[in-house]
């Protein structure tokens, strides 16, 4: 299969959906002729023009609210918030309008839109340009949330999200944009709510989200050298969550570590760990463990920033503790 970068895979999904469905429009800052500050919409303006690749002013709340209204009237906007930290500005239209719309209107309206945003550490962007706030979105009933971890999943999850009749929030780790991998040509859909087994193993399960998947696979390579075989599972979407696949893995390995790049306190790892503790208790030989980001803002310092999120070494250490326990 031909390989693409994660960034190219997202663009391919957007272009494919825009060709298939004329109601799909893109909205965001600098996404038009400029092609996006991360080149994440490059080429789309040339193909689809200003009517469908819409540069908004720097008015996140109003512009996203407009996207919600447009989605109630037949458009399918893919709205981009440049940095995940800025979703604070779209929280009202996201939480109070889009998420509750189907429920509040008893199905009379829905908000078929995608909110895409970036996150993650590794580029020294500092406290207001690095935070991973996906757990916030997961906490709001009525939103679906996906964290693509590979180029193929980026393409497939974007296509599914655009076709979904509900608001879907997609968090893209900026450090993954240059990651290359095989991506199916033509239509490729990854359903929301289906986990992927990234590596099979017998000694422990590592459930990892987003960029943590790559770190977990690195850790698995290291641990294999020591004779420890770990299974790596990527839930791909956090809402809906494919709990069944996670439990099935725990039934095979009897030990589980949950790794997430968001802050640990009340975070995504905490929720997944709680679900597993409730649903897989009978098969567990050790308490469920979690590894997540430190509960601090992301510092800009080249020394401090790498200390915030889990990495392969920390995951390997946590697995050691888990299998020893």
């Amino acid at each position: 299969m031909r390989t693409l970068s994660y960034r190219e895979a997202v663009i391919e999904a957007l272009a494919g959906e825009m060709r298939r469905d004329p109601s799909v429009v893109l909205m965001g800052e600098d996404i038009g002729a400029a092609g996006g500050v991360f080149r994440q919409t490059a080429g789309l303006f040339d193909e689809f023009g200003a009517a469908r690749v819409i540069d908004t002013p720097i008015s996140e709340a109003g512009a996203f609210g407009i996207a919600v209204g447009a989605s109630m009237c037949g458009l399918r906007p893919v709205f981009e918030v440049m940095f995940g930290d800025f979703i604070t500005l779209v929280m009202d239209p996201l939480v109070n309008q889009a998420a509750k719309l189907s429920y509040m209107s008893a199905g009379g309206f829905s908000a078929p839109l995608v909110l895409r945003t970036t996150m993650g550490v590794g580029s020294n962007l500092g406290p207001q340009h690095s935070q991973s706030l996906h757990a916030w979105a997961c906490h709001v009933p009525g939103l679906k949330v996906a964290l693509p971890a590979s180029p193929a999943d980026a393409k497939g999850l974007f296509a599914s999200a655009i076709r979904d009749p509900n608001p879907v929030v997609i968090f893209e780790d900026r450090m993954l944009y240059t990651l290359r991998g095989p991506v199916p040509e033509g239509e490729h859909l990854v359903p929301l709510g289906s986990a992927a087994l990234r590596r099979a193993g017998r000694d422990a399960t590592v459930v990892a989200t987003g960029r943590m998947v790559a770190h977990a696979l690195d850790a698995a390579d290291r641990l294999a050298g020591e004779g420890l075989e770990i299974e790596v599972i990527d839930p791909r979407s956090l809402v809906p969550l494919d709990l069944e696949a996670l439990v099935a893995s725990v039934r095979r390995t009897h030990r589980v570590l949950v790794v997430d790049g968001g802050a640990r306190r009340y975070g995504a790892a905490a929720e997944i760990a709680a679900e597993l503790a409730e649903s897989a208790f009978d098969w567990l030989d050790a308490p469920v463990r979690r590894l997540a980001a430190e509960d601090v803002p992301i510092p800009i310092s080249r020394t401090l920033e790498p200390l915030v999120q889990p990495d392969a070494a920390r995951i390997a250490a946590a697995v050691h503790a888990l299998v020893a326990g």
């Binding site: 709340a61 109003g62 996203f64 609210g65 407009i66 996207a67 919600v68 209204g69 447009a70 989605s71 109630m72 009237c73 037949g74 458009l75 009202d92 239209p93 109070n96 309008q97 719309l101 509040m104 209107s105 008893a106 009379g108 309206f109």
Partner: peptide
């Protein structure tokens, strides 16, 4: 939170100002 798709009504709204972008989005559509 009264919505009435049949009459083209995007709803009353509990958020002061919250409906203004919805109408603006309807106009965009």
């Amino acid at each position: 939170h009264v919505y009435d798709a049949a009459s083209g009504n995007l709803g009353t709204n509990g958020i002061v100002g919250g409906a203004v972008p919805l109408a603006t989005g309807a106009a965009l559509a």
